[in-house]
């Protein structure tokens, strides 16, 4: 990765929840345009890791720089969040707003776009995620897969430089997983910088530049997908892969 522009850079990041050491000396660099998949058993700290990237989780020790902004500068956080999209496991759409209103809310109120500009951008994005005919629907009128695609469009409508995904398909029925993954694969191929917490190893094989395995708050192994899946170095990685790939 060397000379590539750095988008996300963790150096010696540590975080505790009370006595629990949830992130242990994380050092990790994600370059511009890179797609990094993070996996690991539940409780391994992977969600906490990406929640640190847009400041949803504070941390106690170490340094984290995203798009040139040091996360210890809480005043710069709002400006940074405009550039970093975040997609949640539970979608978190606003239930009192239509799909289109969900997507255009932040562009209008944060970016200062006119309603017409924001709606043009929002419509194009909802078309792109395959929901051109659902713009006027409220979240409860949409399936889980559709809601998650609206949530992705909502993040993209801010035209972010980085997209973070926290288990985006874990709350979905199996038949809806692919419609969401397809959108994410498209995004990766367009060159978006992405950090994705997921157990969808097919997705990792297809588009990840690197796969990271976390356990007990530490990064155990980092490798390109072909190496990661065929020749993992650590016993814990092999053990984990054995558990998730045989299902």
């Amino acid at each position: 990765m060397g000379q590539q522009a750095r988008m996300i850079e963790f150096s010696g990041v540590n975080k505790w929840f009370g006595p629990l050491h949830v992130l242990q000396d994380i050092s990790l660099t994600v370059g511009k345009g890179e797609v990094v998949v993070v996996c690991g058993p539940s409780g391994s700290g992977k969600s906490t890791l990406i929640r640190c990237v847009n400041g949803l989780e504070p941390f106690e020790k170490g340094r984290l720089v995203v798009d040139g902004t040091d996360l210890s500068n809480r005043r710069a956080l709002r400006a940074l969040r405009m550039e970093v999209g975040f997609v949640f496991q539970s979608f978190n759409l606003y239930p009192h707003k239509t799909a289109l209103e969900n997507v255009t809310l932040a562009p209008i109120h944060v970016r200062g776009l006119s309603r017409a500009e924001a709606e043009a951008r929002g419509r194009a994005l909802l078309e792109k995620v395959g929901l051109g005919d659902r713009m006027g629907n409220y979240p409860h009128q949409l399936s889980g897969g559709q809601q998650q695609r609206v949530a992705i469009a909502r993040s993209l409508c801010m035209q972010p430089k980085v997209m973070l995904f926290d288990e985006p398909t874990s709350a979905l029925d199996p038949e809806m997983i692919n419609e969401v993954l397809d959108v994410m694969v498209g995004l990766a191929r367009e060159g978006m910088t992405m950090m994705v917490v997921t157990h969808e190893m097919g997705f990792a094989r297809k588009v990840a530049d690197r796969v990271i395995f976390m356990d007990h708050g530490a990064i155990v192994e980092t490798a390109p997908p072909e190496t990661f899946f065929t020749a993992p170095v650590h016993a814990r990685t092999r053990d984990f892969l054995g558990k998730i790939l045989h299902h």
Partner: peptide
Amino acid sequence: RGQVEAGMSTGLSYLQ
């Protein structure tokens, strides 16, 4: 709480 976090993640201020 997730809706509030979604708002934070798109840069909405506390009052917004």
